[in-house]
């Protein structure tokens, strides 16, 4: 039993398998900016992971680049610019506001507006009194009679 408990304790110790290496900063503010940045940048190899999460070699290299830029005293924007110059907007988890991303930014609101309009129209139609002219026309009466004759006769 004790052995089993020990075994599970050992498993727990393995859990925080961090993809990240230890980085030394001369300023805690820089460290904060670095950590925020790599969470917001996408790894190009494991495309659904951020640079912070990814264990891919390219992600490590790019973390080093970001680290060097931040550590050298440059702004976060410069680090982002460095990556978008080489890899495009794809590396950004927050897409920039551009003409080609208009649909991305406004699409959900358009859908919401469309849905609201649809519901509003439905509600109004339901609130309307049922149409009164349920009388059959002469032509329809004639067709009904034909059908009745066929099935009853």
């Amino acid at each position: 039993m004790n052995r089993l408990i020990l075994y599970f304790c050992g498993l727990l110790a393995c859990l925080p398998a961090d993809a990240m290496e230890v980085r030394q900063f001369d300023d805690p503010a820089k460290q904060g900016r670095y950590e925020d940045l790599i969470k917001d940048l996408r790894c190009l190899v494991c495309q659904n992971q951020s640079l912070a999460d990814s264990d891919a070699e390219l992600a490590q290299d790019l973390r080093t680049e970001v680290y060097n830029i931040i550590q050298s005293g440059k702004s976060s924007e410069e680090a982002v610019q460095f990556l978008t110059d080489r890899y495009g907007d794809f590396v950004l988890y927050r897409p920039p506001f551009k003409s080609i991303t208009l649909l991305l930014w406004f699409g959900p609101f358009l859908l919401l507006a469309g849905g609201t309009f649809f519901l509003w129209r439905q509600a109004r139609r339901r609130a309307e009194p049922a149409p009164q002219d349920l009388e059959l026309s002469a032509e329809e009466r004639q067709r009904l009679q034909q059908l009745k004759d066929r099935f009853q006769g």
């Binding site: 190009l44 190899v45 070699e57 390219l58 290299d61 790019l62 680049e65 080489r86 890899y87 495009g88």
Partner: peptide, 13 residues
């Protein structure tokens, strides 16, 4: 060797 030129050229795969 260190992949620096690769990064300059935007190599990812």
């Amino acid at each position: 060797e260190d992949g620096k030129m690769g990064i300059e050229w935007g190599v990812y795969g």
